[in-house]
Simulated scan of single mutants.
Amino acid sequence: MARVGKKAGMIAGIAIAALALAAGIALAVYVDNNRHGEERDLARAHAAGFEEKQVQVSIAIAGDATLNYAEGPDNGPALVLVHGQGMQWEDYARVLPDLAKRYHVFAVDCFGHGESSHDPALYSCEAIGQAVKAFAAQEVGGAYLVSGHSSGGIVAAWLAANDVEHVTACVLEDPPFFRVTPEEMQAPPGCFVWKDAFEVIHAYLNQEDAVDPAVYYAQHSYLFGLFGGLQPKIAAWTAAERAAAPDAHLTLAWVPHDWVRGLYYYDDFDVRFGETFYDGTWFDGVDQADLLSRITCPTVYLKAQTSYGEDGTLFAANSDEDAARVQQLIACCETTVIESGHDIHYEHPDAFAKAVNEAAGKSSGRR
């Protein structure tokens, strides 16, 4: 009997050790992915032939400026990608190798992001739209598809409406139409992006402490506040990482990457860009309904499923009612709702590539 008990104890010990080893491996994989997952995505994009470049563009409302971009191999129709606020062209890295098989991809850095010009005079939909239009004329030199994510989706819509001769198809990836002005974002029940981004940026720019903007965000984030006592720890980890590597992308290896991905490119982001959404100047001179009604090319509208927080806050880029209005205003539009976070091309690269292919196919069918 004692021998049986001893054997059972040994088996239990081996099982516990195996579980501990598995847990250790899982933790190591989790931390490694948080630290290096984005780097590996970018390495695959470079291996697929993407090269980073810069060009000078002339903008009617602001003069000359530098536009940074990545260009892939010429394997098909030109495709221009415009990232969302707080990101840069590398945000598309996960989907670039697949897109490069069928398209000649140009992924730009918007002003105030990455290596493009950081100048508040350029921080508007009109200026960015004019710049990308000039860029396409110089570097693409003909017809192109355009896709934009979030605020970049509004820029993509601007291009589809204002470069009609060259834009053959458009993909709008979860743009915040009808939730983009200060009044729209503050209308009850309120928007997540207003509370988590623009209010925080405005407060940061109006305080006197010399604190890093990423650290300030971590300390005051609406999102991190939902995690209760975890927010001070995330803020402390952010401060420690920024102090150790102020010029590096923020990773926070112990925090789920999806929680903090919005901070990843903060080292190359001018937060004054966000202030233009707080005061409404980013959208000066642009009427949303008029803009959408002037889009005549085939358009695929990718909408992340609408969700609300426990306090009623709209967590999505816009509501179902807003999305229906987008669909109604664009003459040739197909709306696809997907269960995803806001950054669809990162979370569901296959679905995003499919949307681009569908838009391209509709464009070919028209010709």
Rank of each mutant, 00 (worst) to 15 (best):
Y204E: 04
F227T: 08
D258E: 14
Y265W: 09
L252V: 07
G141S: 05
G262D: 03
S151G: 03
L145G: 10
V260Q: 02
G341R: 14
D32R: 08
F227Q: 11
R294A: 01
P188E: 10
G24E: 08
L122F: 12
A26W: 09
Y346F: 10
A62E: 10
M87Q: 11
L292D: 03
A317T: 10
K303L: 12
G142Q: 02
D98H: 05
D343N: 14
I344H: 06
G72F: 10
L81R: 06
Y144Q: 04
T306C: 09
E165V: 02
G361K: 10
W282S: 03
D279A: 07
A121N: 13
A353K: 06
L314W: 11
D163Q: 05
G76K: 01
F50H: 06
A253C: 00
Q207T: 15
E358D: 14
D209I: 09
A45E: 08
I201T: 15
V356Q: 03
G152Q: 03
E358N: 12
P97C: 06
H249D: 13
H166G: 02
L314Q: 11
K7F: 13
S147Q: 14
T299R: 02
G112F: 02
I295L: 02
P120K: 10
D311H: 04
N318P: 02
A324V: 01
A210W: 05
I25H: 04
V132W: 04
I11W: 10
S293I: 00
A187L: 05
